[in-house]
Every structure is written in C-alpha cells, then in structure tokens.
Design a protein around this nucleic acid. Structure first.
Length: 520
RNA sequence: GGCGGAGUAGCUCAGCUGGUUAGAGCGGCGGAAUCAUAAUCCGUAGGUCGGGGGUUCAAGUCCCUCCUCCGCUACCA
C-alpha cells in the first residue's frame, strides 16, 4: 500500500433530512478520496452524524420520541444519501456510539491532565423556553422597557456551573500555526478571517452544560455533558480507535484533510487544534472550508422553501451527472449556484456530447466495422504521438496537480481539453474515410482512440465512478490498469490479441431534455 | 465601525511575483464533415477589465479615493 491519506467530511447535524449542501460536501470528499486511491494512496475516508445537543433533544420531544431513536432514524437518511451518491466512506460514525463516548472522555481527560480545564460559572441571559443563552446584543425590546429573546420569549440573568477550556492560552500557538503552515487553513480568505479573529483575543471557552443531558457525560463531574463541539470534533479520532494505541491511529493521524463548510471554519481551525495541542496530539495537516450552494443565486432555507433534496436531483439527472456538475461548475472553495438548467446544460455539453459521444462513435465504429475485434496498431504517425502527448500532459500531470491542490474544477477542465483533443483527432483522421482508402491506418487510428478513451475514463473515474467503471468494463480494460500510475502501461495489445470483442455500446450519458417548466 | 474578499465579453468565470494585438467554456453567428447520443470539427464574437486620480518606459495586474455586493467580528447546532 502507498502513503496513508485520511480525509473526513464534517459530521452532519441530522435535525432534518439531508439537503444538497450535505450532498455537495460528501461528493467532494468522495472525489478527493477516490482520486487519492487512484493515485495509489492508502485512503481512509470518514463521514457521519453529530447527534448530540439541545436541538436534537427538542426535536425528539416535538416528535414524541427519544433522542436516540431520532438520531438512529435521521442518521439512516444520511447513510442512504451516501450510498445513493456513491460516496465511498470507510466509516460512518454516529456520535451516540459507545466508542465515541469513550474517545471524547479520553480527550477530555487528556486536556484536564494538561491543566487546561477548570470549573467555573457561566453567566448570561437565559431563556427557559428556548433553553438557550443569548448575548446582550441579541436581545430585543419587549415593548415594556424590558428585554426579551429574538424569539420573543422572556429571558433572565442566569448563572450556571460550567467547565471551561483555557482557549486563551493557545492564542500564540495558533497564530504560529497559521503563520508557519499557511496550508493548514484554506482557502486564503478563510485563513485571513481566522487570523484576525484570533488576533482580536481569545477567551476561555465554556465546554460543558448542565441544562440537559443528551450528550457525552463529563468524566467525574455528575450533571455535566460536554459542549457538543468538544465531542463532535473528536469524531475524527474516534474513527481511528483513539484513545487506544491502534494501527489506524499510527497510520492515519494526523488527518490529511478535514473538508468542511465555511460556516464551521472556526471550530475546526481554532478550537480543534487547540484541543489537540492540549491533549498532546498532532494537529491535522489541512482544513478546507468549501463554499455554499445557492439555488439560482439565492441561499437555501426551509422558510423560503427552496431546499433541494439530493435524492430527487440524483433521480432526475443521474448520480454521475450531478457529481460532475457540482465539481465542474463550482469553483471549489467559493459559493456556487445551481439550477436544473445549469445541470442539464453542463451534463449535455461535457458528458453527453463531448465525452460520451466520443466513446460512442469510436466503440460503435469498431463494433460495426471490425465485428468488435480490437484493431491492431500498425505503426504510429506523428499525429498519434501528438495526441498521446496531450493526453499524458492533461491526465497525468495537470489533472493530478490540480486535484492535489483541491482545484477540482480546474482539474476537470484539463480533462475536458484532452477530450476535445480526441474529438479533433477523430475528425482530422476521419477513420470512416480511411476505411476505403487505407484500412491499416484506420486500424491504428481506432486503436489509438481506444487507448485514449480508456485513459480518459480512468482519469475521470473519481468524479463519475459508476459510468467510468461501466465504460472500462465494456471495453475490457483490466483492473490493474485502472490507476494513475498504470494507465499508461501496455495493456492494449495483449487485450487485442486475446480476441476480446467490444459489443455495440449504449449511450453512456443520455441527453437531458428539460421539461418546459422553468419554475421551481 | 474594524478586518478581509469580490466587481473582466450576453452568461459562468481564468488571468502568478506589472510588459507583445485582455483569455477559456457556454450561448449566438458562419463554414466543414457525416463515424456518432441532430452529437463532432474549424472560424468568428471587437469587452472603456466598477468610477476617478496617481506611480511607471509599461497596469485588470501596484498606490490613493469613491460606488456596489459579500464574508468575518465566539459559545448556535
């Protein structure tokens, strides 16, 4: 096995069903994970759900069920989503699991042993009805000279016993981390925000609650459960067997990449490394805060009613079409916009017309004119070598480099350039004309294209895994060849000599015709 | 208010440490071809690079200022 690579998504808070934003993060992480596998890395990929906290408790009460039952039920939707979208996780964690409680308590004890925790009082404006604290500036006038919560519920000054973490003690170490390892937090704009936040001064962090009990118990402190972020972040360790001295921990910690949404950058770029430093554990190599998906340029929200169900999108457009669209169209790290029209256009232009049709025209030509027997290579001409050079450059240099840097859409652009080059080559060489004038040359041209199509499929397989696999299977490309390292090896002639026959292909990506209704 | 980011062809965007006629994709237009999912290929589009000022032999690319939009400015998952 190659070098270890550990990637995680954030764990989702399942107080509602998964929406397209969850799908986007899971898909992006999956593409990176699959790319690294293709790249020969020993990949571990974790995702899951964060089920503790007040909101889940409230939701459970609302539905007249227990938080655990609700957590199990809702988590299943997220698991189903991953399965539906071909998200190839190794571990799906749910924070109510026993090993996770054990890991969270272990990191707590480690921080305590390091002298960073202390018991004190948390004071603030508390709304009994909301079961939440509000900051002074969040309060609104109640119309009678008093204050009330933004929800219009009464608040009172409340004092609660709470454990605190000496976050302020880590200010300098955190700033040094950002400074010495700019790659730790990406994109740059997120790092700027965090640096200025940390520079503005850190305060101790309240990390336990006594007002409810749905969470991880604080060790040796009855009545306290951990502030959800303490246990939520710890999930990244739980999945590796922490606190035990496991092979997984040795191999995969620190994580290579925590892929998260831009809204939770602070927790991952400030609290998490501070917790880890306190517990004497190495910090992750990189945190990447991706952007949000906007529905036709507008933020999704339940109240507006423009939340999109990923299952519905997958059904309507196809899983690979959806995956391709999200990664090709959205510049990774920035917000992106999507609409049915945009998905259809992108899928039709790139997948159906350019790539799918390339495979279709060549494979069916071979199937119809050569009975599906693979043509022999009878001496290459400069044009063939030129095509291979373009392919190698795009697929084995540019694309991996871009993916390594998480410039995913740029990597796919490089792939598209290779696809264009192949279609241009087809038109220049015109095998249908060679059929009458120079059948031997025709064979070489078709063989060249066969190899090219296989390479294109292998390179794009992280993005459109099931379509790529279907095509490679149809073409009889051996499994051993399906990696970045081996895609350029000599597998074609042995396959051709083995009397392999390609069947008449079916269009890989049927064109999407949108119904006239633009609404929704 | 403070800090940070963005404003480039109809649309979506590239443009690193300043330097030949400002680029790509999509759409549009004009050709070619007919193997293929009416798919492909070639050519084309002349946009004051948000406004104004400045530095420089030379500025989307640096400085100042103004306008517009967005993000962050802690205990909410």
């Amino acid at each position: 096995m190659g070098e270890p690579y550990y990637i995680t998504t954030a764990i989702s808070y399942p107080n509602g069903r998964p929406h397209i934003g969850h799908a986007y993060e899971a898909i992006a992480a999956d593409v990176i994970a699959r790319f690294q596998r293709l790249n020969g890395r020993d990949v571990r990929f974790q995702t899951g759900t964060d089920v503790h906290g007040l909101k889940m408790l409230q939701k459970a009460r609302e539905l007249d069920t227990t938080p655990r039952a609700l957590a199990d039920e809702m988590s299943q939707y997220f698991k189903d989503m991953c399965d539906r979208l071909d998200v190839s996780y190794d571990r799906f964690i749910q924070t109510s699991e026993d090993d996770h409680h054990r890991a969270s308590q272990a990191i707590w004890k480690a921080m305590e042993a390091n002298g960073d925790l202390y018991l004190d009082r948390y004071e603030g404006w508390y709304s009994v009805r909301d079961e939440a604290y509000y900051a002074e500036d969040e309060l609104v006038d109640d119309g009678q000279g008093g204050k009330q919560s933004p929800q219009g519920t009464p608040v009172e000054w409340t004092v609660e016993e709470s454990w605190f973490f000496k976050l302020d003690a880590y200010q300098d170490k955190l700033l040094a981390l950002y400074d010495e390892h700019p790659e730790f937090l990406q994109p740059d704009t997120r790092r700027n925000e965090i640096v200025s936040f940390v520079k503005s001064g850190l305060r101790p962090l309240s990390i336990s609650r006594t007002s409810f009990d749905w969470g991880v118990k604080v060790p040796g402190s009855d009545g306290h459960v951990m502030y959800v972020w303490v246990d939520a972040l710890t999930n990244y360790l739980t999945g590796l067997g922490y606190p035990d001295d496991t092979e997984l921990m040795a191999k995969h910690w620190p994580a290579d990449l925590h892929l998260i949404g831009k809204d939770i950058v602070r927790f991952h770029a400030v609290y998490w490394p501070a917790f880890l430093m306190s517990a004497n554990l190495p910090v992750p190599k990189q945190v990447f805060g991706h952007g949000f998906l906007l529905n036709k340029g507008e933020k999704m929200s339940k109240s507006v009613g423009n939340v999109v169900d990923p299952f519905a999108l997958a059904d309507a457009f196809g899983v690979d079409q959806l995956r391709y669209f999200l990664l090709r169209e959205v510049s990774f790290g920035q917000d992106g916009s999507y609409s049915p029209q945009a998905i259809a256009m992108r899928s039709n232009a790139d997948l159906s017309n350019s790539f799918g049709n390339l495979a279709q025209r060549i494979l069916s030509f071979i199937a119809k004119n050569l009975d599906g027997y693979l043509p022999a290579i009878r001496g290459h001409q400069p044009a063939d070598a030129a095509l291979f050079e373009v392919l190698t450059d795009a697929l084995q240099t540019e694309m991996p480099k871009a993916f390594e840097e998480l410039s995913l859409s740029q990597g796919i652009e490089a792939w598209m350039r290779a696809v264009f080059a192949c279609n241009a080559y087809v038109d220049e060489q015109a095998p249908w004309a060679l059929k009458k004038t120079d059948p031997e040359r025709m064979e070489t041209v078709l063989a060249t294209l066969y190899i090219a199509i296989a390479q294109l499929s292998i390179a794009i397989s992280p993005v459109i895994p099931s379509s790529a696999k279907a095509l490679l299977d149809h073409m009889g490309v051996p499994d051993e060849v399906r990696s970045l390292g081996a895609m350029g090896s000599h597998w074609y002639s042995p396959l051709a000599e083995s009397d392999y026959q390609v069947g008449v292909p079916k269009p890989l990506f049927p064109r999407i015709d949108l119904p006239a209704e633009d609404a929704e």
